[in-house]
């Protein structure tokens, strides 16, 4: 009876001799080295592909948000708080994308924004139409919201419809919104500056609302000022 289970283990049984700690360290070290080589190899191999994927994804998203655009130009804010054009339109430091249509006319500006979500940072882009003073589209690029609930901010058509014509008109002074963005319960949106939240994803909806409110206060006046300088010249 007692010999039976022994037989199964025979293959794995270690010699009775004590295993020295030297051998343990050696074994761990060897496995660690194999692991390191594997990870470094995979990282090196996939890095360019991942970077290219991300750039392509961002590029595709910019044109999705700003329909009608065919070319774009990247801008960033320099140390003096001035907008500067970037030489490479796929530069990861870009904060704004000025989008032009086939006739080289400015159709809108895509703004990068981010903020704290339910679990981690939400990164998104939204399109701003300076002529109509409206947000004309929004897309979440990165989030770790709860699957099935919070992640609806990325694909729920009713929620995304909020951002197809969201009013961000400035007061004549040009520094504050005439109507601050408001978050209302699902289905209660009746003003162009209201965002209707997703039922069951209140925290994530609130996060998107906060990101847009803060970004529209910080980024849009800068853009408006920059555009008026350009037309003035």
């Amino acid at each position: 009876m007692a010999a039976e289970p022994q037989k199964d283990l025979a293959g794995a049984a270690q010699p009775a001799a004590e295993t020295g700690s030297g051998k343990m360290v050696m074994a761990m070290g060897a496995v660690g080295s194999i692991a390191a080589v594997l990870i470094v190899f995979t990282f090196q191999f996939t890095l360019p592909i991942i970077e290219a994927n991300k750039a392509e994804y961002l590029d595709k998203s910019v044109y999705q948000v700003m329909s009608g655009a065919t070319t774009k130009k990247a801008y960033a804010v320099d140390a003096a708080g001035q907008l500067q054009a970037l030489a490479d339109e796929n530069d990861p430091a870009a904060q704004y994308y000025f989008c032009y249509n086939a006739e080289q006319k400015l159709v809108g500006i895509v703004v990068k924004a981010s903020g704290q979500g339910f679990q981690d940072v939400i990164r998104l882009i939204y399109g701003y139409d300076p002529d109509q003073q409206k947000v004309v589209g929004m897309k979440v690029l990165q989030s770790t919201e709860t699957p099935g609930l919070g992640d609806k901010i990325e694909k729920d058509p009713v929620f995304l419809a909020n951002f197809q014509a969201l009013d961000v008109t400035f007061t004549p002074g040009g520094t504050s919104l005439s109507h601050p963005l408001e978050l209302v319960k699902s289905g209660e949106k009746n003003q162009p500056w209201q965002i209707s939240a997703i039922t069951g994803a209140t925290v994530s909806s609130r996060a998107v609302h906060k990101i847009l409110s803060e970004s529209s206060k910080a980024d849009l006046p800068l853009l408006v000022q920059f555009l008026s300088q350009q037309t003035g010249e």
Binding site: M24, A27, M28
Partner: peptide, 12 residues
């Protein structure tokens, strides 16, 4: 793999 450190090694 010495059996004393097997779990750590497997996790690695």
């Amino acid at each position: 793999i010495p059996k004393q450190v097997r779990i750590a090694t497997y996790i690695l």
